[in-house]
């Protein structure tokens, strides 16, 4: 699991570089990617948790990014985008694609729908972080 979290951090840093992020921002983005992925992996071990891992992972990415953005006075986007890449359900989309190509229609449909639901869970996690955590930080900062 540690290895996996580390890999997620490497992914975040590599994609951050690809999107022209530099310096400390990159390091923070990597840490956010690592910690959120580790937590998501832990949650996905709970039986019957479904997309809970994806949802909480995205929520953590969004929340930590808003906090980092506040303290570093930078757009939250700079932290969110590299860290969220690992959560994109590319694996499920791929499985769905291969199933369709192999004429396993139902399997393809299942993976495809799972991918869509996973994307939904991630979107809701990000949206919640922006809608709830952001105002909380901004308000407590203003006082």
């Amino acid at each position: 699991m540690m290895v996996s979290a580390l890999l997620s951090g490497v992914t975040a840093v590599a994609f951050g570089l690809l999107y022209q992020v530099s310096g400390w921002t990159l390091v923070i983005g990597g840490l956010i990617g690592s910690s959120s992925w580790g937590l998501a992996l832990l949650l996905s071990r709970i039986p019957g948790s479904g997309f809970l891992g994806d949802f909480v992972g995205a929520l953590v990415v969004g929340g930590l990014s808003e906090i980092a953005a506040y303290f570093r006075q930078q757009p939250a986007l700079v932290f969110v985008v590299p860290a969220i890449i690992a959560f994109v359900p590319g694996d499920l989309v791929y499985q769905s694609m291969v199933s369709f190509l192999k004429d396993h229609f139902l399997q393809g449909l299942q993976s495809g729908l799972s991918a869509l639901l996973a994307a939904g869970a991630i979107s809701i996690g990000l949206a919640l972080a922006t809608a709830v955590i952001r105002p909380l930080i901004r308000r407590s900062g203003a006082k």
Partner: peptide, 25 residues
């Protein structure tokens, strides 16, 4: 499959999804 997903992830519109969510909210 893991190789394939790795290569394709370079193309994923991760930023578009993120900004779409943030714009919507």
């Amino acid at each position: 499959g893991a190789i394939l997903v790795g290569g394709i992830m370079v193309l994923t519109p991760g930023l578009l999804i993120t900004t779409a969510v943030r714009d919507g909210i």
